[in-house]
Nucleic acid binder design. Sequence first.
DNA 1: CATTAGTCATCCAATTATGAGCCATATATA
DNA 2: TATATATGGCTCATAATTGGATGACTAATG
Lengths: 221, 221
Amino acid sequence: MGSSYDLAANLSHMIDDGAWLTGERLPTERTLAEHHRIARNTVRRALKLLEQQGRLTRHVGRGTFVSERAIPATHLISARMEQASPADLLEVRLIFEPQGAALAAARASAEELDTIRRACQQTAAARDLPAREIWDARFHLAIMRAAKNALLIEYCAAINTVRQQRLWSRLKQRTLTAELQHLYDAQHEAVFAALKDRDAEGARAALHQHIITLRNKILGE
Amino acid sequence: MGSSYDLAANLSHMIDDGAWLTGERLPTERTLAEHHRIARNTVRRALKLLEQQGRLTRHVGRGTFVSERAIPATHLISARMEQASPADLLEVRLIFEPQGAALAAARASAEELDTIRRACQQTAAARDLPAREIWDARFHLAIMRAAKNALLIEYCAAINTVRQQRLWSRLKQRTLTAELQHLYDAQHEAVFAALKDRDAEGARAALHQHIITLRNKILGE
DNA sequence: CATTAGTCATCCAATTATGAGCCATATATA
DNA sequence: TATATATGGCTCATAATTGGATGACTAATG
């Protein structure tokens, strides 16, 4: 404890969390030293690390500031997302995806509906679990694409990378029986049917039900 | 138990699970030895294995670090998020923030509530617009943090970086009058009050109303 | 008996941490 | 304008930390 490396990691995480937004000033070196009960030289070494990483800029007489252009944040975001628990994942999916489906019902083009339909069919037709997982992820992503919201699409893509983590795959494998597969397939089709009918409420409800089922099966009811 | 192979496998799994991210420093050999109640030489043998596998790098006087690994191409998340339109952004916020507030009402600790309250006060007390924006972003992030879902937190942090884009700031500046500020402040307080009362539905409704107002004002009603 | 792995103890070399002081620049105050 | 204060930049001597390496001893195994 108390090493410059630990402090650097600490501050880096705090910046990621938004403790100080871009352009904001950090506490002074002397304050950080006193607060963390380490020598000022150690603080300076940590700040130097972060400055070399481009996370901070420092000015004599003014202070230390979070860099305007925080490029590496993207890596950190997804890296920490991958550590989210399956419970977290299902919770956010339950928040985002039904709403996304409702938007998609209103906005999907004919081609997009066709893409969704194909992904739905391919999921059901997949012969092994990895193939099934891939098509399942594509199905959900296709719906978010049809919602035509750039942030929703990126969110779903991020979710899909999380879904490919080991822990998640193991959990899913453990519970996926043949009859459960058929249930999931039927739920997918229900979602697609509502989208095709431009039934926003129906699409929302169908996807909501699907994720609820997933959650119950995977996390235990 | 206690063999160097077991420890190596152990540490390897912990790295996979994200106990230490790439570039982060592991505990010292002496600490690992004491913690696992094995001899330091045994720890060294395990670390040597992992070093040979390329999972770790070691430096005299500095410590043991998780090796940097190639980051998949799918992780260019927020770079593309920054291209999202204000309409997209508000649409997504309307989807997840009210739900996050509902979760926060149930899960927030006393300290987290205090952090939210302070952010709320600082937003109202901010003297200039940049300061106000910073505290406003912090207010919303603090609520998501209280919801205790890692993905929600990351997503909100990403949203906050998007919010700092020029286009977004200009849009907000253009419409932000003094009376509108007071309305926003009052809405913030309503959200906090509901959170404090552990009123999930109230918090959801209050934040929903707030973002609806934002959307109407910023995008034009 | 030979082999292998673990424990304990000790020393070494590289790096970091501490504490103190002084400098240069920027900002606030009189 | 002139002075005072705050802040980052820098140096130095000393202490503490940390991985690297070795040797003596023990226990289990074939």
